[in-house]
């Protein structure tokens, strides 16, 4: 089952969790009904639509930039990513969507895009474990070690080997 790659949240992002029903024309990512914006015969994810409105280049399907709202589908579950704020980066001023348009689908996603661009906010990112499917014990298996391996890799971790 393909799941929607658009993230929910503003301060800390999490998976949408919905089943994808469309493919974004811009970034070719699977998107659900809720996050799809239909424009003439095209369908865009809310982020690509926001970028089109702002006159910017569309992201690629593998763009890992979390703030863009689309990420790599099925990326390894992880602890929240530490936000990195670059004080030297010039603050852009993407115009906010009109407040009276809040009823339109994708308004909050467009607003989020404006906010990240204008205020240089870098959100935390909670991956799929945070939606309740994985518990703390499951999550520990995915913790990355200092040498880059996962718990369970190698002979010293429980004696499992590739078959």
């Amino acid at each position: 089952m393909n799941v929607c790659v658009v993230k929910r949240g503003i301060f800390s992002l999490r998976e949408c969790g919905n089943e994808a029903s469309d493919i974004c024309t811009g970034c070719k990512s699977p998107i659900c009904q809720e996050h799809a914006v239909y424009s003439s015969s095209m369908v865009y994810c809310a982020i690509c639509e926001a970028k089109i409105r702002a006159g910017q280049a569309l992201p690629s399907a593998t763009d890992p930039k979390l703030a863009g709202g689309t990420g790599v589908p099925g990326a390894a579950p992880t602890k929240p990513v530490t936000p990195v704020v670059d004080p030297n980066k010039p603050v852009s001023t993407t115009p906010p969507p009109a407040p009276e348009d809040w009823e339109s689908p994708g308004w909050s996603q467009r607003w989020r895009y404006h906010y990240y661009e204008t205020y240089s906010y870098h959100p935390f990112y909670y991956n799929s474990w945070s939606v309740g499917y994985y518990d703390d014990y499951d999550r520990n298996s995915f913790d990355v070690r200092a040498d880059g391996s996962f718990d369970g890799d190698g002979a010293e971790a429980g004696g499992f080997s590739d078959s």
């Binding site: 800390s12 530490t82 936000p83 704020v85 906010p96 607003w111 906010y115 204008t118």
Partner: peptide, 21 residues
């Protein structure tokens, strides 16, 4: 502006980081 309230909340989040492993 909505930005003002959200930015105030974001100011709190800017003090946070991921916990130690």
């Amino acid at each position: 502006d909505v930005d003002e309230l959200v930015e105030a909340i974001a100011s709190a989040y800017r003090n946070l980081t991921a916990p130690a492993e």
